[in-house]
Every structure is written in structure tokens, then in C-alpha cells.
Design a protein around this nucleic acid. Structure first.
Length: 740
DNA sequence: AACATCTAGCTTTTT
DNA sequence: GCTAGATGTT
């Protein structure tokens, strides 16, 4: 090691880095060199004689862990310290001590869509109508309970869940039973089971806490009840718990993260010194002033000043646009302007938005403007239908008990085993208390099953058995075999779906890359690492959005505000700073923490080094149609914004609502009307309406249909209303009533 | 009984 | 603007 880990640090950074034994809390404002403090402290511990194997640093994303690893490498620190995410640590522990945890050692990890498949099945069996109990909502509540480690009744009395507790706990139990039968854990289970294991098994707790004598936890403000308990358990006995975080950047409350964990650290560890990192080496004073003004409105925080160490910059801008397309165009212009005028590299610029759905228009505008971009959304790929299908085959090969995967592939591509047949098989499995796989192997006794269906099932079982014979080969070889012999490849050719084919081939390439990495790492193998197919599947399950972010890509980055945490860019544009978006309408309705929404904007703003722009539009298409939009209430009272308006009649900033503003359903004022009108060569009639017909709209009154617009899946009409508005609106969504 | 087409309903954020 | 279920067709 060449560098002294203490050189080139500020006073408070130095205090943190030099800390050795006992607990410590580092309150690190944005851009204050937190990652640097963590890596330098690890380097220093090792330099002072601590064995690297005794150090464990926990992060929330693989990206953050990788970043720290590479910095340590750059400092020539000897390897051996474990830097990983909470989730992957849990997987390691649960695999190593599977027996004690009461788990099959080869357990699989179910993602959201797998969970939904299981739950839909449960709801059907319990005869609960999916209309009254939307699977997504039920899952959400099950997840909330797990993350708080509470039973349904307790959760309900604390107002965390609103489904009937008895029902919730029944459904939840049935859901867990199914997971167990499939040898599967969901994301939350990884944490819950580990926390519980460490709680209950004192011997193991002691063993593990002695194995890693120095524990560091990053983003401590985002820990939930499970993670908190895991951290406490792992630090038990030595209390060498070094946590870093910033209450102002806590944005995962909805995932069970409890800001109290960091706010109350000093109560948990009265002896713990607290270090504040308040010097900001990232952003211009203008950016910081804005961030500070914004976050001051929050009550639940630890007062912290942001001291700018960067030179003066430009005033942050506030753009106001007519609608989301104007906004996207304006965003592209702004980015090009900075690239061409200021010579900024595209890779140093980013666009943030609240919801993923908002990325599409921006993407289109950037294509139009010939600006290279990358959307940071890694999981997307692994969630594509065709990719999930291929993965389901692989999972089924490895784990015959995995019914979610079995049901997914049994008729994909179509092989004549339809819903009715599958239902009969499931009924048989239930009545004999067997797994679906067992019934499949011998379907002769299934009532109502036709011989033709029986033989198709036989062929399917033979296919799977055959594919299962050489699972010790390279993963890419197995995947390629599956792709071809399952018939997926031919199906894509027949359906003329080259995108699907390309995606599965990409999956095979990713498997090949995994094979290669594994071959390289063969010597450095640690006992608990899964290898081969199982290892590959585990990795694909734990991948996150931000993991796909490539700073070398030479392209503007597009991502959600949540994904933006921990990153920095020279120029940042935050779009859709509107009431209902930031803060999101959903979070307002839920009566949840408005302060968290404000922190989200704070996180976005503080990513910017020199150029920052926010924008809002006065009309935005949500669920298809345009809706009026008001500037976010968070903008009220902010000073120093350079307002650039392209709409003369927009509501002024002081008119921004001070309270949540809800758009009346179906109401569209005329200023929100699209400017362009449909081309003439469109159909004469649509969904029972015809051109020239008079119609009534619940909010806009009477009008006349002028033209139809096709495209997309739902038909839309151009309607001239008597009151003056002229709109393009979805025929179904608008609830139009024909008058003649 | 499987397959093709249509339509209603909905979408926060993610490990 | 999409996708999962519902509906219709072979």
C-alpha cells in the first residue's frame, strides 16, 4: 500500500477514517466524500494490522459494493474484505446454514412476477375475487408486514396495512406454504429468514459476529427492521458498527426503511461518536442553496449545513412547458445546448423522472435530436416475457419442485397443453396431495384427460428429463439447448418476432460471460458460492436497476429519482416537478410521508455538479389522455430559480398549490388541448361512434366528433366541444355518451 | 379445447 | 400505452 489513508482528507473525514473500535455514526451530506471515508477506513484498518477477512461492508446495491471494491483495488489494499449487499449477504448465510434455517440448500429466489403468480394461485384456491383483492396490493401488504417483522394484526393496528388482518394472515400463510413447497424464497424472505435465524440461534450469531469483527453499513437511513436486526446481530459482542448515512436522503420508507434507525443510533449506542460531513465537494453553491432551501421544509431531520467547496456556477433553471412532449423536446434541446455550447460530455449528463413510464417520451425526443442515451433499468431485460420464459426452463431443470416455472413453460411455446388440461392436472395434484410435477410424470389417472393430451404431456416430460441430463455443462450450453429444443426458437421465427429471438440470444451471451468469469474465478472460490447453473440463476435474481449503469457509455443517462441516489453528473434535468408526480398522487392518498417525497427531490437536485434544471408542464398525458398539471407545491417559496417559460398562460409559481391538488376525473381544460389534429385518412367510424356524431362528455358537455385517430390499442376521437375545447380523447376512457 | 383477438383497467418508487 | 383477463373463432 503506497498512500497513507489519512492524507488529503478534511478534519472530520479524518476523524471518521481514523476510528477503530466501537460504534460510530457518520452523518454524511450529499457529495461529502462518504464513499471515500468508507474505503479509506477499510484501508486504514487493514494497514494497522486487521486481517481483511475480518471486515464486512454492507451496501444496498451491487453497484455501490463494486464501486468500493474497485476503489480499494486502486489503493492496492489487499483483498479479502467482504463488500456486498444486504440481500447477497443473506443468501450466503442462508445457503451456508441452510439446515439450521430449515431451508433446502438449493432454494431459488422468486421475483415480483413469480410472487404474483403464486399469489394469484392462492387467491383462486381461497375463492377470493382478484377484483376485490388485487394481487399487487395483497403482495404489497404481505411485504410491508415482513419488512416490519410484524404479524397481520399488529400491522393493522399500526395502520401499516388495511386489508382485514385475518384474511391477510390466512392468505399470507397459504402463500408461504406454496413458496416452501417450491423451495423458494422471495426477496423479503431473504432478509426475514436471516434476521430470524440470527435472533434465534445464539451460537451462530456469535460465530458470525466473530468472523467479521468490523462491520460497516452504508446508507444506514435506508435500513428496515430486518436489516437493522441483522446489523445488530452481526455486531453483537464487539459493537464495531460503523454506519454512514443521511436522514435527508432516506427515500425507501415505502419499502419498510425506518428513518428512526439512523435518527436513534445515538440512543442505541450512547457511547457512539457522531461525525458530520458537511463540506460538499460536488455541487455549485447555487445548486446547494436550492437543495438546502427545499429540505429545510422538512421537520424530521438532523439539522445539517451544506458548505459549498465548489466555485460559483449558474442559477438552476425552472422550465415550464405545454405538455410532456414539449418538455421532452426542451430537455433534448437543453442537453444538446450544453454539449455543443459548453462542451459537456453526454456521459456526464442525466435526466431524472419520478416514474419509469415517463421515460418513453424523453427517449423519443432524444432519438429525434440524435442525442445518445442509456436508460438505466437493468432488471427490465430479465423481466421480458421471452427472457423469463427461457429462465423458467432453466429454473425448472434445476428445481423440479418449482411450479411457477413449470406452469410458465408447460405450454410455451404452444404445445397443445391448454388451460383446461392444466387445471385438471392441478386438481389431481391437489386431491392426491402431490406436486404438479409428480402428476405430470404419470398422468394416466387424471379424470377427463384425453389420450391426445396425455401423449403431449409425455412428450413434454421427456423433453424436460432429457434437458436435465447434463446440468454440469457450461450454463451457455444448457441455455442454448433449451432455446432450440424447447421450440422457443422456432416459435419466434414463426411468429416473426426477431426481438424476442435477439433477447434470448442476449441471455445466452450473458450466460457465456458468466461461464467465463466463473472459469477465471475458479481458483479464488469460496466454499459457499454457488456455481454453474445455480450460480447464474442466483445472480440474475439479485441484479438491480442501477447495476446496469455504465459511466463509460458516452450517453446521457435516463433513470428514476430513486436510481439516481449515490450518483453525480455535471448536468441534471429533473422532469415532471408537478403536483401528483413529485409528490406522487399515490403517496399523498396513502397518507404517507410527504417529507419522503421532498427528500426524493432533494436527492435528485444534489446529484448535480454545475448545471441543474427542473421542469413542469401544464398538461400531461396520464393513462393515455391529457390532464391538467400544476407545478409541484415543493416549488413554492424556492428562490434563485431562473424561470424559463414557453407557455404564456401557465399558472405562476406562487399559484402552485400549497396542498395536494387533485385533477377532477375526466376534466380537461381547453389549454390542455393538443395542438395537432388527426390526419384526414382515418376511419369513418370507431367503436360505434361516427364522424359528425354529437356526443356528451360528463365534464365537458356536448360536442361533435370531427375525426378518429387510430394507433395504439384504443381508438381515440378528435372532438370539438361547444364550450370551445377541442380534444383528442380515448373513446373508452372518456365515457362519451352518444346523442344521436 | 386451443388459439386469436379485443378490451378494460391501470401504473410510484426497488432489493 | 401496455398487459392480463375476457371474449370470440376455429
Amino acid at each position: 500500500m503506497t498512500d497513507d489513508p489519512l492524507s488529503g482528507l478534511t478534519g472530520s473525514q479524518r476523524t471518521a477514517v481514523a476510528h477503530v473500535d466501537g460504534p460510530m455514526l457518520v452523518l454524511a451530506g450529499p457529495g461529502s466524500g462518504k464513499t471515500r471515508v468508507i474505503t479509506h477506513r477499510i484501508a486504514r484498518l487493514i494497514a494497522s494490522g486487521v486481517r481483511p477477512e475480518r471486515i464486512l461492508a454492507l451496501t444496498f446495491t451491487n453497484k455501490a459494493a463494486e464501486e468500493m471494491r474497485s476503489r480499494l483495488r486502486g489503493m492496492d489494499v489487499p483483498p479479502g474484505a467482504l463488500l456486498c449487499t444486504f440481500h447477497s449477504l443473506c443468501v450466503r448465510i442462508l445457503r451456508e446454514f441452510a439446515v439450521r434455517a430449515g431451508l433446502p440448500s438449493g432454494f431459488v429466489i422468486y421475483d415480483q412476477s413469480d410472487q404474483k403468480a403464486v399469489l394469484t394461485d392462492v387467491l383462486r384456491e381461497e375463492k377470493l375475487d382478484a377484483k376485490d383483492f388485487p394481487p399487487a396490493r395483497v403482495l404489497r401488504q404481505i411485504s410491508v408486514l415482513k419488512n416490519h417483522m410484524l404479524a397481520a394484526a399488529e400491522g393493522a393496528s399500526r395502520g401499516l396495512v388495511d386489508l382485514p388482518p385475518v384474511l391477510l394472515s390466512d392468505v399470507s400463510a397459504a402463500y408461504q406454504k406454496k413458496l416452501a413447497a417450491a423451495g423458494a424464497l422471495d426477496f423479503d424472505d431473504l432478509l426475514v429468514r436471516t434476521a430470524r435465524l440470527l435472533d434465534e440461534d445464539a451460537e451462530l450469531r456469535e460465530r458470525l459476529s466473530r468472523r467479521r469483527l468490523y462491520l460497516l453499513v452504508d446508507e444506514y437511513q435506508d435500513t428496515n427492521a430486518c436489516q437493522y436486526r441483522i446489523a445488530r446481530s452481526l455486531a453483537s459482542g464487539h459493537d464495531n458498527l460503523f454506519v454512514t448515512g443521511d436522514p435527508d436522503q432516506s427515500i425507501y420508507g415505502w419499502r419498510g426503511a425506518d428513518i428512526e434507525n439512523i435518527l436513534a443510533f445515538e440512543r442505541d449506542f450512547p457511547a457512539a461518536p457522531v461525525v458530520r460531513l458537511e463540506e460538499n465537494f460536488r455541487s455549485s453553491p447555487q445548486v446547494l442553496r436550492l437543495a438546502d432551501e427545499l429540505i429545510k421544509a422538512n421537520a424530521r431531520r438532523k439539522e445539517k449545513v451544506l458548505i459549498a467547496r465548489k466555485p460559483e456556477g449558474r442559477a438552476p433553471r425552472l422550465f415550464r412547458f405545454l405538455d410532456e412532449r414539449d418538455e421532452a423536446r426542451g430537455t433534448a434541446d437543453w442537453i444538446r445546448g450544453l454539449h455543443e455550447g459548453e462542451g459537456l460530455d453526454y456521459r456526464r449528463m442525466a435526466v431524472f423522472y419520478r416514474t419509469n413510464a415517463m421515460s418513453r417520451v424523453i427517449e423519443e425526443a432524444l432519438i429525434q435530436a440524435a442525442v445518445p442515451y442509456q436508460i438505466v433499468k437493468g432488471v427490465e431485460f430479465f423481466h421480458r416475457r421471452e427472457v423469463k420464459d427461457a429462465l423458467a426452463y432453466l429454473r425448472l431443470l434445476l428445481n423440479p419442485a418449482d411450479e411457477v416455472s413449470l406452469l410458465r413453460v408447460i405450454n410455451r411455446p404452444a404445445r397443445g397443453i391448454g388451460d383446461t388440461t392444466v387445471e385438471r392436472l392441478q386438481a389431481q395434484a391437489r386431491s392426491l396431495c402431490l406436486g404438479l410435477g409428480d402428476v405430470l410424470k404419470d398422468p394416466s389417472g387424471v379424470p377427463g384427460l384425453t389420450p391426445a393430451a396425455g401423449s403431449r404431456i409425455g412428450k413434454f416430460v421427456a423433453l424436460i428429463d432429457d434437458l436435465r441430463t447434463h446440468l454440469d455443462r457450461p450454463v451457455a450450453a444448457i441455455a442454448r439447448d433449451v432455446y432450440i429444443r424447447s421450440g422457443l426458437k422456432d416459435a419466434f421465427i414463426q411468429e416473426k418476432d426477431p426481438d424476442a429471438a435477439e433477447n434470448v440470444e442476449e441471455l445466452i451471451r450473458s450466460a457465456a460471460q458468466y461461464d467465463e468469469e466463473e472459469a477465471e474465478a475458479a481458483s479464488a472460490a469460496e466454499g459457499v458460492e454457488l456455481r454453474g447453473l445455480a450460480g447464474y440463476l442466483q445472480r440474475t435474481a439479485l441484479i438491480s436497476d442501477i447495476d446496469s449503469y455504465d459511466e463509460q457509455a458516452g450517453a446521457v443517462s435516463l433513470m428514476t429519482l430513486h436510481s439516481a441516489k449515490g450518483l453525480e453528473f455535471e448536468a441534471v434535468m429533473i422532469v415532471g416537478v408537478e403536483e401528483g408526480i413529485i409528490p406522487h398522487a399515490r403517496s399523498v392518498e396513502d397518507g404517507r410521508d410527504l417529507e419522503e417525497e421532498r427528500r426524493l427531490l432533494f436527492v435528485g437536485i444534489t446529484r448535480a455538479e454545475r448545471f441543474l434544471a427542473l421542469s413542469h408542464a401544464i398538461s400531461r398525458a396520464i393513462h393515455g389522455g391529457p390532464r391538467p398539471a400544476m407545478p409541484s407545491s415543493f416549488l413554492r417559496g424556492l428562490t434563485g430559480l431562473d424561470v424559463v417559460s414557453t407557455v404564456p398562460f401557465a399558472p405562476s409559481l406562487s399559484e402552485a398549490p400549497s396542498r395536494p391538488f387533485r385533477t377532477p376525473r375526466g376534466f380537461v381544460p381547453d389549454w390542455a388541448a393538443p395542438k395537432a389534429v388527426a390526419p384526414a385518412a382515418e376511419p369513418e367510424t370507431m367503436s360505434g361512434f361516427r364522424i359528425g356524431q354529437r356526443v356528451r362528455h360528463p365534464a365537458l358537455g356536448e360536442g361533435r366528433i370531427e375525426a378518429f385517430v387510430s394507433g395504439g390499442t384504443a381508438g381515440r376521437a378528435v372532438i370539438q366541444f361547444d364550450k370551445g375545447a377541442r380534444l383528442i380523447m380515448g373513446l373508452m376512457a372518456a365515457k362519451l355518451e352518444p346523442l344521436d
